[in-house]
Every structure is written in structure tokens, then in C-alpha cells.
Amino acid sequence: MENIIKIVKEKFENVPPFSLVIKNFDNLDLNDPETLKKLMWSSYFLYFQKDYENANLFLDFLLTKHFDGNYDKWTWIEGGILLKLEMGGEQSLKDRILETLSHDDDEQKNNLKRKTFQRRLVGQLLNRDKIVSAVNSNDSNLELLYSVPFFKELLFIDFMGNNEKFTDEDIQNEKQKCKERIQDLIS
């Protein structure tokens, strides 16, 4: 899949702040968390550029990996699953995320994972304050770098959640607003 590296370099190598994220992207070792991270972020950038064909190509490649207990790798695979769901992927993809909550034989670890999952569902990882700070300092590159993970967390809440903090309408409006802002920042 050298084609993926070529696409990334052609599209993002000289485009700040994307170039920071994909710096030194020259291998496709899917056991390397850094490679998975670059694949996931590249798929998001392609999505925001409305290059859905290549975004799906990257996501399909990324989603060949399954949870093996390593969260350093899973973080990026999960982010890819969320974007794939946003792009109309099969709802059964959610099961891949939910399965991680009971992966261990140690029930204490599983309980801790479920608590973390619940904290994410109520928006504790949104980090809205970082975006506000970037906006206040008039740093559009930093705003973009914080807004994409914010969008990813909104996807998590949307696809994985049923909670009182966010109504479906609120989350859809927030996602749309965030997506439009990111597209403004990259145009």
C-alpha cells in the first residue's frame, strides 16, 4: 500500500499544520502506533477536504487491524471506526469498540474501562477550552489541530452514547458546526 504514503505526501507534506502530523510518514507498519496515528489523522484530513474516496481507502486499510489489548494502537483504530461510521459505515462497527470494554479477564480492568468510556460519553475529553484558547490567541493552525480531535470525540459521543448531557439534536449541531469550521480553516 505504498500508494497511501504517496497520497499522504502529495496532499499534506507541505500543508501546515497537516505536515506536522504526517512528518516522516514513510512506512506502513500496522503494528506501529505512529503509523496508525498518521493513517487515522490523514483519513480525517481527507474527509474534511471532501476526498471521500481516499478517506475510505485509508480507513479500510486502517480497519483491517483489530483490538489486541494495546491501547497505544487501538486509539487510532477506534478513531478510524468512528469516522467510518460518520461516512455511513455499518453500525456493526460499533461492536468492535464495545468489545474492548470486556476484553480482559480481569473484571477490575474492565470496570475501569467502562468508567472511562462513560466519562467520554459525557464529554470529558472534548477539551473545548483548548480550542477557545487557540481562537483567542488567533492561532488558526493550533485551532485546527485541536478541532479535529474535538470532532473525533463528538463522533464518539454521537455513535456510542445515550446520555442526558447531549441530545441528538445538540450533538448533530455541534458536529456540523465543528466540521464547517475545520473546512473553513483548511480552505
Rank of each mutant, 00 (worst) to 15 (best):
L46D: 04
N162R: 00
D72Y: 14
S42L: 13
F25S: 09
F117D: 14
K9E: 15
K115E: 10
K109S: 09
H103E: 03
S187F: 09
M160V: 04
E13F: 11
F18C: 08
K84M: 15
K130A: 02
L93D: 10
K37E: 11
N138D: 07
F25L: 13
V148C: 07
W41H: 09
L155Q: 00
S147R: 02
F151S: 01
I7T: 14
G88S: 07
E2F: 08
F156W: 05
F156A: 10
K84Q: 09
N173E: 11
L121N: 03
W74T: 07
K84W: 10
E86N: 14
Y52I: 15
N162M: 05
L20V: 00
I157K: 01
Q172T: 08
K50Q: 13
I7N: 12
K9M: 06
L98E: 10
S187P: 00
V148I: 15
I186A: 03
L85V: 12
E34F: 11
W41E: 03
A55F: 07
L36E: 07
Y146Q: 02
E90S: 14
E10Q: 15
S133E: 13
L145H: 08
K130R: 14
Y47H: 14
L46R: 01
V15W: 15
N173D: 12
L63P: 00
V132C: 02
Y52E: 10
S92Q: 12
E53C: 01
E174K: 05
L36K: 02
K37V: 01
E180N: 02
L101W: 00
L30R: 00
E86R: 14
S140Y: 06
Q176K: 07
R114A: 02
N110P: 02
K6G: 04
Y52S: 07
K6S: 10
F150H: 13
I5L: 10
K65N: 15
N27D: 11
L63I: 12
D170W: 07
T167I: 04
E143S: 14
Y71C: 12
K73E: 11
D72A: 11
S140N: 14
R96C: 08
I81K: 14
L46P: 03
E90C: 05
L155S: 02
W76L: 04
N24A: 15
N3S: 08
Q176D: 11
V122E: 09
E153T: 12
N27A: 04
F45K: 03
K11H: 09
D105H: 09
V8R: 03
S102E: 05
D26F: 01
T64P: 02
I131A: 03
I182D: 07
L126I: 01
L101K: 00
L144M: 12
K23W: 15
F159P: 06
I157Q: 02
D95N: 05
L63R: 04
S43Q: 09
E2H: 15
S147M: 11
E107P: 05
